[in-house]
Design a protein around this nucleic acid. Structure first.
Length: 596
RNA sequence: CGGGGCGUGGCGCAGCUUGGUAGCGCGGGUGCUUUGGGAGCACUAGGUCGCAGGUUCGAAUCCUGUCGCCCCGACCA
């Protein structure tokens, strides 16, 4: 490609004010993307080359693993999503699915993910165990009406994703394939030149048994991951399990009641009363809203030095209730409290709050669903809310069991925690960007959409399913987050838009022009992705642009053209060598070979 | 949805407090000079000041409403 005739660069000298994190700034400055609306971006020619390279790497590896590429519709009939019982959760309230009606008033959604569609298709074409296993994938634009799109392509409303779905005749076969996909994913990310780690994860709204996320570690990441130094354990914070530190023993207080004026937070109480957070049990109130319109008030207790993990709590409540859980909100809004609760001293609630506090005419269930975290259940002497404004209470020999508490792990693991009772290994924490996620879905979708096959024994059975996603556009941005310097992007060569750029310092010089063209054609003939910056610009401008857009190698054609010599520069390690032009191709090939 | 900020040429911003008909840097175009690290000089094109209404002789500026975007949070995968 030549810059003047076929590949305008569109770099910017100033960063548009919308960008916050480095990768987003560099994408905009480098002319890779243009914002059209909140969370909606145009991929410019140079960006598309990156996307295509990433796609190719993914395709090659998946095809090697026996997967088959197809392309599914983006407009999904609501009916299909109602059958899987996801329409409500995905469209109502804070749902993330864009939805619309056609001219006849029929409802549709823009595909955020494709389990329904693929399951229907699989059910039509798969009849027998002899056709299994089978894995279909596509690389396509997905639509999600994110509550808060941010960081450019990191969390956008339109993004490119590879999504794959596998079908199996048994749970065991699914598990095997899931492992195989995990390996394939590791290879894909490595082939993209990324450092990624696999972590145990919550399966979220997609559902299913087991799931694993692949994370690129970067400070700008939106997720927290916890792991041991040895690599023996790694999990997303939503899923991570650990042993909490030992609590500090509470000396017996003389009085039962503790006056705590305006001390609503654990921090305040500790500071004013010389206590340790682990001697307190905090009580957090939630309201669970279910699909069948049930409103269940939740009372969650946890040790004061620990944090409630709302994902774990959500999953637990969902599991314990027959209808599916749609929303789980902390109750802190005064008007909601006044409407549904009576004499309710918010901020001073204890685990023993009475069910009578729920108003008779409220549309909530009239009994608290009480949950206590493992960290708190063994404390029998502790301080908690006194159920009276400005008072806390000393609980002595309190028994959670007597109050029908459900004991569970609803706690965030944290840095410094032990991973289990036997081990001395301790958790560390880092930020991560989720670039891939694999799930064992099981039979959730096949059961709801009636996707069956004939097994060996002649019986009709539900298909076993797995699903596997990779954020293609997110990979591109994550790669920048991992590879940049003060001058711009430093693409891993595997996904760089071009492998090498020719920079003639003065293209009007016939000698330079001739040599540039000669090298350009030679490289092109050898299938090397090469860009020729044939602009009539000053050398400095071209150097800056080449660095900004992050091409891994530069060929500088300058003064030494007369001797058929050029300079060969590596973007990432900044090495610079002078070399005869007839040796350039072989040098380039040997230099880059090791990088792939 | 709550909190904060911002909408002025392609990009970055000033002007608004105290109303008088829009300016700077970068970028674009033309010419001359320059030519290995975002050049210099000269000329030049380009803006219904987010939108609507109001106050006023007169509004980018004041008032009301509205839309949009960005950031933090809630939330979400």
């Amino acid at each position: 490609m030549r810059v003047t005739t076929s590949f305008p660069l569109g770099t910017l000298r100033d960063t548009p004010s919308e960008a916050d994190i480095i990768s987003h700034k560099l994408l905009l400055r480098g002319g890779y993307i243009r914002r059209i609306n909140s969370g909606i971006y145009a991929y410019m020619p140079i960006m598309l080359r990156v996307i295509e390279k990433i796609s190719k790497i993914i395709e090659d590896e998946l095809n090697n693993n026996g997967c088959t590429k197809l392309l599914l519709p983006q407009l999904h009939p609501a009916d299909l999503w109602k059958r899987s019982e996801r329409w409500e959760a995905y469209t109502a309230g804070e749902g993330i699915m864009f939805n619309l009606k056609d001219r006849q008033g029929k409802e549709f959604g823009l595909g955020p993910t494709h389990e329904e569609v693929i399951t229907i298709i699989a059910s039509e074409i798969i009849n027998s165990y002899k056709q299994l296993p089978q894995c279909f994938y596509q690389i396509q634009t997905k639509f999600r009406d994110e509550i808060r799109p941010r960081f450019g392509l990191m969390r956008s409303r339109e993004f490119i994703m590879k999504d794959g779905y596998s079908f199996h005749s048994s749970k065991e076969d699914l598990a095997l394939f899931y492992e195989k996909m995990g390996k394939a994913y590791e290879k894909i990310f490595k082939n993209c030149g990324l450092q990624a780690v696999g972590v145990e994860a919550d399966s979220g709204a997609i559902g299913g048994a087991s799931s694993k996320e692949f994370m690129v570690t970067a400070d700008a990441g939106e997720d927290s991951i916890l792991f041991t130094e040895s690599g023996s354990y790694a999990a997303n914070i939503e899923k991570a399990v650990s042993i909490p530190s030992e609590p500090v023993e509470l000396e017996t207080y003389r009085s039962e009641l503790l006056e705590t004026p305006n001390q609503k937070t654990v921090f305040d109480i500790c500071k004013k009363n010389n206590l340790d957070p682990s001697q307190i049990i905090k009580v957090v109130i939630f309201l669970a809203k279910f699909e069948d319109k049930t409103n269940l008030p939740i009372l969650a207790c946890i040790r004061g030095d620990q944090q409630i993990n709302e994902v774990k709590l959500f999953n637990l409540i969902n599991l314990k209730h027959s209808s599916s859980l749609i929303n789980l909100d902390i109750i802190e809004n005064k008007s909601i409290v006044e409407k549904n609760l009576v004499d309710f001293p918010l901020g001073f609630i204890g685990p023993d709050i009475d069910n009578k506090n729920i108003k008779v005419n409220s549309n909530w269930n009239k009994k608290w669903f009480r949950i206590v975290d493992n960290s708190a259940k063994n404390l029998s002497t502790f301080i908690s809310g006194g159920n009276k404004i400005n008072f806390h209470k000393v609980f002595k020999k309190y028994s959670f069991e007597e109050e029908e508490f459900l004991t569970a792990d609803i706690r965030n693991a944290k840095q410094g925690d032990k991973i289990n009772a036997e081990s001395n290994e301790v958790l560390k924490e880092k930020r991560g960007i989720e670039i891939g996620h694999i799930f064992q879905l099981g039979q959730k979708y096949s059961a709801k959409l009636n996707a069956k096959f004939s097994d060996k024994d002649g019986k009709l059975k539900n298909l076993w399913m797995g699903c596997y996603g990779i954020g293609v556009t997110r990979i591109a941005q994550a790669a920048i987050e991992q590879n940049y310097d003060d001058k711009g992007i430093c693409w891993p060569i595997q996904i760089a838009p071009f492998e090498v750029i020719i920079i003639p310092t003065n293209f009007k010089d016939p000698l330079q022009m001739e040599l540039s063209n000669e090298i350009y054609n030679n490289f092109k003939d050898n299938n090397i992705d090469i860009l020729l910056d044939d602009r009539d610009e000053r050398a400095g401008v071209k150097f800056k642009d080449a660095e900004l857009i992050g091409i891994p190698f530069q060929i500088i054609i300058g003064r030494d053209s007369i001797n058929k010599e050029i300079e060969f520069i590596s973007r990432s390690n900044k090495s610079k060598i002078k070399i005869a032009s007839n040796k350039l191709l072989e040098t380039f090939i040997s230099e880059t070979k090791a990088m792939y």
